[in-house]
Structures are given as structure tokens and as C-alpha cells.
Computed example of a mutant assay.
Amino acid sequence: MNWTDVGALSDIPLRGARMVKTAKGCVAIFRTDEEELFATSNSCAHKQGPLAEGIVHGRKVTCPLHSWTYSLETGEAQGADAGSIATYPVRTEAGRVLLDVSTLAQKAPA
């Protein structure tokens, strides 16, 4: 794995997200109310809405454009919607958020 520091954990509010630009595209880093971190593609599979601006609830995010909801764990669309977004390994260390950038090329959405 190729862990890269992408910012301070304190910069991501509970039930919020931050968008990180990488050489392979934009990644959304989410922080749940249970203090869990998840990383996904920042683009909704429906109309490429900015997921980092969506509503985080439990282990899900709802796109701000057309209300598609995705599992932050699997990237799968929920309910009647079909599709998925890429998910990436993310962790914290000493208050910093680390993203495994080696997986970005493998999982980048088409």
C-alpha cells in the first residue's frame, strides 16, 4: 500500500466530508458520527454530483443533486437506484488522514 497524508482529521466534521484532489481524480473522505472514516469517488454514478457536498447519515451518503444514496462501505447504490462508486482504503494516524493512493488507478470509475 502507498499511504499518503491528505490532511488533518480535525478538518473533517462529524457527519461531514472533504474532497481531496489526486492525480487520478477527486476523492471524497467521509467522517461518520461514529468517528469512522470512508473514502470514495467524489462523483455520483447518476449525474456526477459532488458527493463530498452530500448528506452523511450512518454509513451512507446522499448525493446533493438528485438524492441517490450510496453505502460508504461498499459503494453500492441503495434502494431502487442501480450503480456504484469506487471505494478506497483510508485510515488515521496521529490525527492525520492517510489514503492508499495505490488503489486509485485500479478502481477509478469509467
Rank of each mutant, 00 (worst) to 15 (best):
L99P: 07
A23S: 03
N2I: 01
T22S: 08
T62R: 14
A108M: 13
G7L: 00
L37N: 04
S43R: 13
H66G: 07
A82G: 12
T69W: 04
A17C: 03
S102P: 06
S67A: 03
E34A: 11
P13F: 11
T32M: 15
K60N: 12
E34T: 10
S67Q: 02
M1K: 06
E35V: 07
N42M: 08
R59G: 04
V101G: 10
R18W: 00
G75L: 08
T69A: 08
D100S: 12
G7C: 04
L72I: 09
K107Y: 13
C26V: 00
K21E: 05
P50W: 10
G54Q: 06
A8W: 00
L9G: 01
A8D: 15
A108F: 06
V6L: 12
V6H: 13
I29D: 02
G58S: 05
A52E: 05
S43G: 04
G49M: 09
E35Y: 07
T74P: 08
G7E: 06
Q106V: 15
E93Q: 10
I12T: 11
R59V: 02
V56P: 14
K24F: 10
E36K: 15
I85A: 07
Q78V: 10
A86H: 08
K47C: 10
L104H: 04
L104A: 09
A39D: 10
T4Q: 15
V97E: 01
T62M: 13
H46P: 14
V101R: 14
L72P: 09
D81T: 04
V20H: 09
A82H: 13
W3P: 03
T32R: 15
D33K: 04
L104C: 00
H46Y: 11
G79E: 12
T92C: 11
Y88W: 05
L14Q: 11
Q106W: 01
G49S: 10
Y88N: 01
A94C: 05
L98I: 05
Y88K: 02
Y70R: 09
M19P: 00
G79F: 02
F38S: 03
G83E: 04
K60F: 08
H46V: 09
D100R: 14
A17L: 12
D81V: 04
G75M: 04
L9E: 06
W3V: 06
F30W: 12
R59E: 06
D81N: 06
